[in-house]
Design a protein around this nucleic acid. Structure first.
Length: 549
DNA sequence: TCTACCACCTG
DNA sequence: GCAGGTGGTAG
């Protein structure tokens, strides 16, 4: 089900994940001017060659076209797919090793934007981050051979602005900038990760960054979508799609849409105003400089190309950053049963400041009291084990190369930081004290009640696999158009949280993947389909900088 | 700014 | 024929 036919990806840039640890590896430090040496992905351990994995973004040229115009992604209550779709070509995997591929979408910065004068501008502080969720590829876990055989498509991933989304879609705030990230996790013997020697790599393609909107702001983006998205074909064939609009209104002549009128007016006004003000058209310079998290690192060679042309205020550099981590912790067995067991969703809210600063999020879903420690914990990660349930996932057997996860229960929970912050504050190869995806240095054992337990929906229980994990886990701040990171080794702090059940399930509510819900008569459960692959991640907020609004 | 609905389209 | 993905539009 994944993937459409594999197609050439020659135009895509290969992520610089190099086994030899060459320049492709761009640890944070290097970006910050620190010594780069040690950043080589820790290839510690036998068969830990996850750092050799290369990922090429499919249709990179298309992504770049969008990026240059300032990519916008529609978010709706029901969930909207991304276009272009996130598809990658993976190579360098061990054909027989099982991997889990997942995506998370993290804030690119802590700003809220507005589309003004035909360009995006910072419009204030970002809203508190939405509950972080992960989208685990439906084929996970699968062997390297499986992943490398064809394109890996995440086209079914959906974005929503519904804070209480019951479908497991990735929740975002409108008018905020986000950065999707791909994570490749080496599944352990139980088709999960978190146990000893678990390693993962993260890949960030900066051209996939976007601003979430409820309706398109930039007409260029609208046109790019119409021109390239097959589902929007009905809007093609006439001057800027106006003819179709006309037809919809029962007219034979083109009708100029509000959007176009607005943009045309804005455009001309901007053009004029710019000339009047400075004698030249406005540039993005001021916007660029407004980024607090701009590392100020030299926008190197690789990146500047798009940062200059991008309509987004750029906060980082487009080159490829690579980071690898290896989870050493033996103490805990963190399982991600993508195919089988879906993890119960963990609480989305993990930080006290979140509640203080963002009361609006205190929905019934999230308002459960947390224990003090949990509240203060900024980087808590949680893992909880669960009974194996082999074969629970229908259809799993059909996939020859994939294995059924005997048991799963994994949940990570930590605050999310704006993506770009990593470049500024994160320490690249800092040993993980918690989850592989977490780059936090401190993990607090206490966890809040899972908000998911109160979710009135099916996927609330699903794998929620907190991504804060991922968020924190990606230390790197890619300053390049694409970046990768491999985890050094997780230093076993996972057990710190391991003894704490992440979920407090209602009795009778099995911790299973949503997929199974369809076959399960358990209350609150209902079939959801693909969305089950989207996991809730920990809350994303991280710091005081999110506190506002 | 956001939502629900629409006609049109793909698969 | 159907389910579901599109952007446009009214409100």
């Amino acid at each position: 089900m994944l993937q459409e036919k594999a197609s050439a990806v020659t135009d895509d840039r290969v992520s610089r994940v190099r086994a030899d640890g060459e320049t492709d590896l761009l640890p944070d430090q290097s970006q910050l001017g620190a010594p780069t040496a040690p950043s080589a992905p820790t290839s510690a351990g036998p068969d830990q060659n996850i750092e050799n994995i290369k990922v090429v973004l499919h249709e990179r040229e298309l992504w770049k076209r969008f990026h240059e115009a300032g990519t916008e992604m529609i978010i709706t209550k029901a969930g909207r797919r991304m276009f272009p779709s996130y598809k990658v070509k993976v190579s360098g995997m061990n054909p027989k090793t099982k991997y889990i591929l997942l995506i998370d979408v993290v804030p690119a910065d802590d700003h809220r934007y507005k589309f003004c004068d035909n360009k995006w501008m910072v419009a204030g502080k970002a809203e508190p981050a939405m509950p972080g969720r992960l989208y685990v590829h439906p084929d996970s876990p699968a062997t390297g051979a499986h992943w490398m055989r064809q394109l890996v498509s995440f086209q079914k991933l959906k974005l929503t602005n519904n804070h209480l989304d019951p479908f497991g879609h990735i929740i975002l705030n409108s008018m905020h900038k986000y950065q999707p990230r791909l994570h490749i996790v080496k599944a352990d013997e139980n088709n999960a990760f978190g146990s000893k020697n678990t390693a993962y790599c993260s890949h960030v393609f900066h051209e996939t960054a976007f601003i979430s909107v409820t309706s398109y702001q930039n007409h260029k983006i609208t046109q790019l979508k119409i021109e390239n998205n097959p589902f929007a074909k009905g809007f093609r064939g006439s001057e800027e799609g106006d003819l179709r609009a006309s037809r919809l209104e029962g007219k034979d002549y083109p009708v100029i849409s509000k959007n176009m009128v607005r943009q045309r007016i804005i455009s001309s006004h901007s053009h004029l105003a710019g000339k009047l003000r400075a004698g030249v058209l406005t540039s993005h310079a001021q916007v660029l400089s407004s980024y607090p998290y701009d590392t100020g690192v030299s926008l190197s060679n690789l990146e500047s190309q798009d940062s200059l042309s991008n309509h987004f205020p750029q906060s980082r550099d487009p080159s490829l950053v690579y980071h690898c981590f290896k989870h050493r912790d033996n103490s805990r067995h963190l399982e991600l049963g993508c195919k089988q067991p879906y993890l119960e969703s963990s609480s989305v809210m993990s930080e006290e400041h979140f509640f203080r600063s963002a009361p609006s999020y205190e929905s019934p879903l999230l308002s459960r009291p947390y224990c003090g420690e949990a509240i203060t914990a900024r980087e808590a990660c949680m893992y909880s084990g669960m009974e194996a349930q082999p074969g629970a996932l229908p259809g799993a057997a059909e996939k020859d190369e994939r294995t059924i996860s005997p048991s799963v229960n994994c949940s990570m929970w930590a605050p999310m930081q704006p993506y770009s912050r990593y470049g500024v504050e994160a320490v690249p190869y800092q040993p993980f004290t918690s989850h592989p995806f977490s780059n936090t240095t401190a993990v607090h054992p206490v966890l809040p009640q899972p908000a998911s337990a109160m979710l009135p929906r099916p996927q609330a229980d699903l794998g929620v696999y907190n991504s804060a994990v991922l968020q924190r886990g990606l230390p790197v701040i890619p300053q390049s158009s694409s970046s990768s990171s491999c985890s050094p080794v997780l230093t076993g702090s996972s057990d710190v949280i391991s003894h704490q059940p992440l979920y407090h399930k209602k009795s009778g509510s099995p911790l299973q993947p949503l997929k199974e819900y369809s076959a399960c008569s358990s209350q609150r459960m209902m079939p959801i389909g693909d969305s089950s692959h989207q996991y809730q991640v920990g809350l994303s907020n991280a710091g005081s900088h999110w506190t506002d609004s």
